[in-house]
Amino acid sequence: MALLEAKNISVSLGKTRVIKQITLSVQSGEWLTIVGPNGSGKSSFLAAVAGLQHCEGSVTISGQALSKITARSRAQLVSYVPQHPIVPLDMLVGDYVLLGRTPHISALGVEGPVDLNLVGEILSRLDLEELSSRPLGSLSGGELQRCQLARALAQTTPVILLDEPTAALDLGHQQQALDLLEELRNERQMTIISTMHDLTLAGQYSDRLMLFDHGRVVAEGNAADVIKVDLLAETYSARIQVIEVDGTQVVVPRSKESR
């Protein structure tokens, strides 16, 4: 049985329907990446799956319908890193990551030794232990991104949703972040659903891609099924070519003159 099942998800923002009847299922340990042009509904879909966006349809994780359980129980099943998280600049790294333990701490309680140890391990796993007493405002983009991931990991959920996890990073840091995610996924049997703009990286790291356009799924499958020149050129209204390098589909923009 699939770990996560989303059935007939529709999302309306005001009077506009931004997600139209999307159904998907994700297996345990799978990495699914949603790609698509700006405004295609990727982030809205992710927020709906996270339970943060009102939607029609149903989402179940491990057989539990998210609409029928408390916010706290939901937060024990699925963690979410938004595209532009609010970062309190003066909050210390250690404190920030500890907030990830919130769904596991009683409403009015504080962290116990178990939480502190777990966060300690995550900080050291993500090379953040030296930074644990530094304010978030003093970190570089790559360090900050690792902190956000660390906070989501501290939630210890079977499913993790990442909205554009590499958007603010340069090429080297993008690879480092995605390598880290891949390692963590294998270590912890995590299920990842992410959105990504970089189609080449999305194809390299994910098990499966889903191409959204105007709130619908227009293609689904592995990189070879989705990263096709005609499909992408039409969906993105872009001049591109797709070449294969070392078995990887690489999307290359073409200049105006090459038409």
């Binding site: 927020a47 996270a50 339970g51 943060l52 408390t70 916010a71 706290r72 129980s73 939901r74 937060a75 024990q76 699925v78 963690s79 979410y80 938004p82 998280p85 609010i86 309190p88 909050m91 404190d95 907030l99 990830g100 919130t102 769904p103 409403a107 009015l108 939630q155």
Partner: peptide, 16 residues
């Protein structure tokens, strides 16, 4: 919980 609220309403909600 007030510290969690510093992350904004959406993230606080995602933390339960």
């Amino acid at each position: 919980i007030l510290d969690v609220m510093r992350l904004g309403d959406a993230e606080a909600a995602s933390l339960g």
